[in-house]
Design a protein around this nucleic acid. Structure first.
Lengths: 142, 142
DNA sequence: TCCAATTTATTAGCATGCAAATGATATGGC
DNA sequence: GCCATATCATTTGCATGCTAATAAATTGGA
């Protein structure tokens, strides 16, 4: 079966492929610099709770770009680690209200400087202008 | 526990968070337009095999940004679907040589126009110049 | 020729990521 | 008051994604 070097479709030129690679590099830097118990998605959930206070699980998922099944698992693991607590909402029995525990609050506050380093390192090959441009263009395709 | 709207660290401004969202939008478009049996990673593997001809599993993983355990699973599923075949390399018994079957070749050739649409749709909100800029900047952070 | 180091692949385990189905609860129109 | 529709959460199942451990095979230097 002959190879197709003259194929017009180039994987390396596809936005999806390069997004995946950029994402992988970022998560690699994240796991290098952040505490082992904090994955990108867990950290995002904690930051949102820090920003917003108590949220329903559904709302927390929406604010962290996570599917309902995914946020369920993330909240379970954060609760197992004592970083959040969930209580059934008193006004709406369908809802779980999620909030940071004191330990969770301290953990996320302690991790934020490191997370800032993660971001810095991820974009370290770019100038300030390039960083702003990249963020703006990525925002346009989300 | 008071909220922290004045927190300096903004999740929405972190490259990792926005990369994840961009990636999710892309994979959503991908699953909308591509045949059900082709996921982004399977498709990438097939395209590489089309481009390069026979590859070792390890090499295929490297060329598709997949970990050795991940590419093992992807190749298994492609083989289960009759899209690739793997044969132990005759010169190096550690290696599996992976190649497209005729069915795999036809499937990937048929899917490429759709994949082109996926890319087009993902970046449809950008001008031509912006697309080039985005690709260049992403390439700089991989 | 021997063996340490390296390479390739497999396996196990944990963590997302998402579609689809399901159940409980809330909402709003008739 | 009833009921269709919507919302929130859970569950199941499949697909990555990766680390770490393991085994088999290759390589290259002593």
């Amino acid at each position: 079966m002959t190879s197709n070097q003259d194929l017009k479709y180039k994987l390396d030129d596809q936005i999806g492929f390069i997004l995946r690679r950029a994402n992988q590099r970022h998560t690699g830097i994240f796991s290098d610099l952040m505490p082992d118990e904090l994955t990108p998605t867990r950290f995002a959930a904690l930051v949102r709770l820090l920003e917003c206070g108590t949220l329903s699980q559904n709302q927390l998922g929406r604010l962290t770009a996570m599917d309902v099944a995914t946020i369920k698992g993330v909240v379970d693991r954060l609760r197992e680690r004592g970083l959040v607590e969930s209580i059934r909402d008193r006004n709406d029995a369908r809802r779980q209200s999620i909030s940071l525990t004191e330990r969770g609050r301290m953990a996320v506050l302690a991790a934020i400087p490191r997370a800032t380093e993660v971001t810095e390192k991820t974009v370290s090959g770019l100038s300030e202008t390039e960083r702003d441009t990249l963020m703006a263009l990525l925002a346009k395709i989300t």
